[in-house]
Amino acid sequence: MFRTLVSPRLLGLHVLTIGVLIGFILLGRWQLGVFEDSGKPHAATDPAPVGVETLAQVGGSMASEALSRRVTATGVYDAKLQLLVADRPPSTDAPGGNVARDEGFWVLTPLRLADGTLMPVVRGWVKTADDPAVAAIPGGQTSLSGRLRPAQGTDSVQGRAEGLPAGQVQTVSTGELLNLWQGEKLRYGFVVADPASGSLTAVKSSPPVVGGELTWRNLAYAANWWIFAGFAVFMWFHFVRDAVRGDKARRSTSPEMVLEG
């Protein structure tokens, strides 16, 4: 039997079967990976920028389709109302890595639009509150672009919840800003300017994220490839079994066996 299994004709079959098995298993794993990746959240395609007035309302909330949308705005910065948002990394996304090392301040300056309403704008980020870039506020009519973000809750982050110096806040909360900028009509949310204003460090703000939709077709493809692999093993087994049986039959009917009998 061993001589039959290592015969040249069966050695080629063994090699071919192993190659087919590896190929089919890898193809099935690839289709399974495509299936798994299809369910993961991913960045949505960025629509064309629109005027911030169309998405950020006065005294209202923000529709889900407006979150992280690119917007444009034109107006005049109100330097007297500028604030610093404390204990912030240069990103609106969930911080990662060494958060303490990245802590600094968002420079929050309201932009007065043509209709007199205020749109809070994060012009950029600084490491220290006394950075000269904080006071370098563009004068006159200013046009900017950026991403629209929803207002934050006053207790949405951990940090110095109280005892902040004058001119600093913990979060970009529309309700808190209404108290600080009394008498003003304030639009909901805030814009993260891109590019940053002046020599400020740009604050990273990712595009909208949408949930993935599982492509069950790829899971079926993976199963098919693995079924093919099982069928290849089945065919190999039958070829080998038939070869062994045939060799046994030939040896039993060979002249040498007859003479010995």
Rank of each mutant, 00 (worst) to 15 (best):
L200Q: 05
A196V: 04
T72I: 03
V85S: 13
P110F: 09
V50E: 12
S252N: 09
G116K: 09
D115I: 06
V50A: 12
H14P: 04
Q57A: 15
L67I: 14
T74F: 05
A86H: 08
M1C: 03
A243M: 08
A223K: 10
R112S: 03
T54G: 12
A56N: 07
E176D: 14
G163M: 08
A135H: 06
G124N: 03
A243K: 12
G139R: 14
G140H: 08
Y77V: 07
P208W: 01
S252I: 04
P110M: 08
P132H: 09
A136E: 12
G175P: 09
A151T: 15
I25P: 00
R187N: 10
D242A: 14
D46H: 00
G59N: 06
W30S: 11
V244H: 02
F24P: 03
T174Q: 13
F234I: 03
E53I: 02
G59W: 05
D87H: 03
A161K: 14
L16I: 14
A196N: 07
G159Y: 01
R123W: 10
H238L: 15
A166N: 07
H14L: 11
V121Y: 04
D93I: 05
P47L: 01
V20D: 08
Y221I: 05
R70F: 02
G97Q: 03
E103V: 01
A129W: 01
A136V: 05
V6H: 09
I227A: 13
